[in-house]
């Protein structure tokens, strides 16, 4: 499986944010998208997620389900946690598990985890029945990340995934990401720090002069 974008351009509010961005990410590899603030890292990820219209260029997923657009193969993990404070931790996660359609593309040995297992893995099993309102910022972030574990989708689009995470949670995140790559997934991450992963390429976005 390979995610290909050719000659992407992005307009926001009548201003061209970037143009001529091409990228290619294959199964088992990660791409770190770097660049200064405001250069369009988030916009690029949101374009790939189908949330921002593509001004020019094409996005295609080779080896995916051709019936469905590429973004339906993607998990998007952005700045917002998509959690409802009045629902319990488990209810939040179970909703996204039941609601999100899974997409094939990972190796057979990497099944989606159940809610309990995912909560155990991110260290929130003790809080499963508590309202999400009582979680700290880092805990909310981790709960939001658990969404990627309970629904199988091959492409992970991560926008500043390490934001608000402490060192041990960040280590856990790295573990998750390498496991996902090993299972044949692919990752695009907008980040300031280098990704500590094998098979990582870097796409550096630079403002046009």
């Amino acid at each position: 499986m390979q995610l290909v974008a050719e000659n992407l351009a992005c307009d926001r509010g009548g201003r061209r944010v970037f143009a001529g961005v091409s990228l290619k990410v294959a199964s088992g590899t990660a791409l770190a998208v770097t660049g200064a603030n405001g250069v369009g890292k988030s916009s690029l990820l949101r374009q790939l997620a189908g949330l921002v219209p593509v001004a020019e260029g094409v996005i295609r997923l080779e080896g995916g389900d051709d019936e469905r657009p590429p973004f339906e193969h993607c998990h998007y993990f952005g700045h917002q946690d998509a959690l409802k404070p009045s629902l319990s931790v488990a209810e939040n996660l179970a909703f996204w598990q039941a609601f999100t359609a899974s997409a094939p593309g990972l190796k057979a040995g990497a099944p989606a985890r159940g809610v309990d297992e995912a909560l155990e893995f991110i260290g929130l099993a003790h809080a499963a029945t508590l309202p999400a309102a009582y979680l700290s910022a880092g805990q909310r972030r981790r709960l939001s990340l658990a969404r990627l574990l309970v629904v199988e989708r091959p492409v992970w689009l991560l926008d500043e995934p390490a934001a608000a995470l402490d060192a041990s949670s960040e280590g856990r995140l790295c573990e998750l990401m390498s496991a996902h790559l090993e299972a044949g997934g692919l990752i695009l991450a907008a980040t300031h720090q280098p990704l500590r992963l094998a098979n990582t390429a870097t796409l550096h976005l630079q403002a046009a002069q």
Partner: peptide
């Protein structure tokens, strides 16, 4: 109590880490 329980770091998670 619930807020305190949510803030508690589970022993298992730290052990795993």
């Amino acid at each position: 109590l619930q807020m305190r329980a949510a803030a508690r770091q589970p022993a298992t998670a730290t052990a795993q880490a």
